[in-house]
Nucleic acid binder design. Structure first.
Length: 592
RNA sequence: GGUUCCAUAGCUCAGCUGGAUAGAGCAACGGUUUUCUAAACCGUGGGUCGCAGGUUCGAGUCCUGCUGGGACUACCA
């Protein structure tokens, strides 16, 4: 790493010039701002007390020292307290020849094969997926690829919430008003069909609730007392009692939903190593609750309910088991954590779950720590912001959602229309066209959702379509297609060259410097748990490639060494774009 | 009420552990194609970084207060 090398030289400079011992780790080297000549900058302001010289003098002396001692720089420039260093051109060329061409360029082994389990998606089975779920799925998928590229051994899982009152609502409405409708009979995708009956239930329930309120009942009371809600609860009780007919309907309707989800997952390009079902895990937590009682970290109230006191940790008391002995959400999660650890002895367990559950995960981890679970420390809530519409958060219950399947279809369609309009479908079979449109449409959608810092909420305006130009997925895909086109046209040309027989222009050096950053970006993405870091990088890289492409001729360059250099540069940029795209789940076309 | 997150151009977002004149994209306007893919490239206009203090050589970044907004704070999941 050139930065580290420079730091060592600078630390040595302090020792020799000023008799001051400064660890090279504490020295900050940053990229030189574009407005100035130079590649890296050392800021001397913090060290003036030890050098007892003016900023200019200090910078000048250190710069001269670096040249004298043979640091890998060819020149330097001092502006106020800024020492701008120009790295030797050969350095960049050697980097291109020796490192950038390696297939594993960008990846590292810092994870040391530590085991990470990533849970993501985790849908309810009473309604189809919406845009918020897409963000979750893409983040989960991407962070898995990023962790793998950093040398972690990663397994993915999906905890499906297949039981509970919400599923019973769909079941009830279907039983009462469905007339035996099935996905086959109606031609409706399974998850949408079940979602349809969820909406039927909610509509009916809302009417009943309004009637109760009109007759003088409080809103809270009315919410629990509608005839529909009571019947749904009856159904839940029957389910928990194992009533055969109820279980049968439950299985059938969940089956429809899984078919539907499966199709959506396939379109999104996500997959899972393992599925967990809450119907299997919801009872497991009870054992942990008993364990906590035995250890005296939980306590029982007079009505038999079990609680944990987290007031010392700045939180409240938290219910772990209802008075009637049934489990609540957190109980299940305790059990699931234990189960997961048993299946895959992880060092870290990542939960890709929205930030509305920040409190929940804080509690979960605290409780597991109180139980002295060895895996408690490794729990990490990858908390991401909600996707909001211009008028606020999406609400399934009110039908205020952007449906996942609709949006995907729309993106692919727009990609098709755009591609056709640009006349880029010549000679493609229908199948190749469909694949390309899907690749581009999904590229646009994925990039749109992943480029934003996961921690932040983001806005989606359905009235404005997602762009295909500028800072977008298709821009990067297009850049890749251009590169591939050049390489196809230049196939067979010589690609080895002597560093001494070429010159490196500003655009070329800029591109090389960008390439050089890539391994740092991959590491940062894992450290920050943010695919957005990769997005921003790829956009920068593609932009500097396009500038280079615009400024220089590649195949028509007459100096064979220079041409070879540019071809290798193109190839390396193409590799990095593909590698980076794979971290995001975005495929790169050969032509578009 | 308590906990917590957020506020940067008309819109959507970058801005790494504090560093030089705060950057992109979209939208607006203007230019570039007999030359490797114009989903591209170049240029113009656009800012009290929510407000007020503080810390220091230096603050969009750190601290305090205020304003505005979101989430959580259920014997829902």
């Amino acid at each position: 790493m050139i930065q580290n090398e420079l730091k060592k030289y600078i630390a040595q400079a302090f020792l020799d010039l000023y008799k001051a011992e400064i660890s090279s780790d504490s020295i900050a080297i940053e990229k030189t701002s574009d407005d100035y000549e130079g590649d890296y900058t050392f800021v001397v302001f913090p060290y003036l007390k030890t050098t007892r010289k003016s900023p200019e003098q200090t910078a000048q002396q250190i710069g001269e020292y670096l040249i004298q001692q043979g640091a890998p720089i060819q020149s330097f420039e001092v502006l106020k307290g800024f020492l701008n260093l120009v790295v030797k051109a050969e350095f960049w060329i050697q980097f291109l020849q020796n490192e950038a061409q390696l297939p594993e360029f960008g990846s590292n082994q810092s994870g040391n094969q530590q085991k990470v389990l990533v849970e993501y998606s985790s849908p309810n089975t009473n309604k189809p997926l919406h845009l918020g779920h897409i963000r979750n799925n893409l983040l989960g998928y991407s962070i898995i690829q990023i962790l793998k590229a950093n040398g972690f051994e990663v397994k993915s899982c999906n905890l499906i919430n297949d039981r509970g009152i919400h599923i019973c609502k769909s079941m009830l409405a279907w039983l009462e008003q469905g007339n035996g409708e099935t996905p086959e009979s109606s031609g409706i995708k399974g998850d949408h069909l079940v979602g349809k009956y969820y909406v039927v239930f909610e509509k009916q329930n809302k009417l009943e609730k309004e009637q109760l309120i009109a007759s003088g009942m409080s809103e809270e009371e009315a919410g629990k007392s509608t005839p529909s809600m009571k019947r749904a609860q009856d159904l839940l009780r029957k389910w928990e009692a194992g009533d055969e007919e109820t279980i049968q309907i439950w299985k059938t309707m969940n089956g429809w939903v899984y078919d539907g989800f499966g199709q959506t997952y396939t379109k999104l390009g996500v997959n899972f190593d393992q599925f967990y079902y809450e119907s299997n895990t919801y009872l497991l937590g009870k054992e942990l609750v008993q364990e906590g009682l035995d250890k005296g970290v939980f306590f029982k109230k007079a009505d038999g309910s079990v609680w944990v006191d987290l007031t010392e940790d700045g939180l409240d008391q938290k219910l772990l088991l209802r008075g009637d002995g049934t489990s609540v959400y957190i109980t299940q999660d305790l059990g699931t954590a234990e189960l997961k650890f048993g299946d895959f002895a992880y060092n870290r367990s990542v939960y890709v779950v929205g930030n509305e559950q920040d409190y929940h995960f804080k509690v979960l981890q605290l409780i597991l720590k109180k139980l002295n679970k060895p895996y408690a420390e490794g729990i990490y809530h990858m908390s991401y912001g909600m996707v909001e519409l211009p008028d606020g958060k999406m609400k399934s219950r009110e039908g205020k959602v952007v449906d996942a399947d609709d949006l995907i279809q729309e993106m692919v369609q727009t990609a098709g229309e755009t591609t056709e309009a640009l006349g880029k479908t010549e000679g493609l079979t229908e199948e190749a066209k469909a694949d390309l449109f899907h690749l581009i449409g999904m590229g646009a959608l994925k990039y749109f959702l992943l480029k934003v810092d996961p921690r932040k909420k983001m806005l989606f305006n359905p009235a404005e379509s997602i762009d295909f130009q500028g800072n977008t997925g298709p821009f990067i895909q297009y850049t890749h297609a251009r590169i591939r086109s050049v390489l196809r046209n230049g196939a067979g040309l010589e690609t080895s060259f002597e560093a001494s027989s070429i010159s490196v222009s500003k655009a070329e050096k800029n591109l090389l410097k960008n390439l050089y950053q890539y391994p740092l970006v991959v590491a940062e993405a894992a450290r920050e748990m943010s695919p957005g870091v990769v997005c921003n990088y790829l956009f920068d890289l593609a932009k500097s490639y396009n500038q280079f492409y615009h400024d220089h001729s590649i195949l028509k360059e007459e100096n064979p060494a220079q041409r070879a250099f540019r071809l290798v540069l193109c190839d390396s940029v193409g590799r990095v774009i593909r590698h980076g795209g794979s971290l995001l789940g975005i495929g790169m076309p050969e032509k578009m």
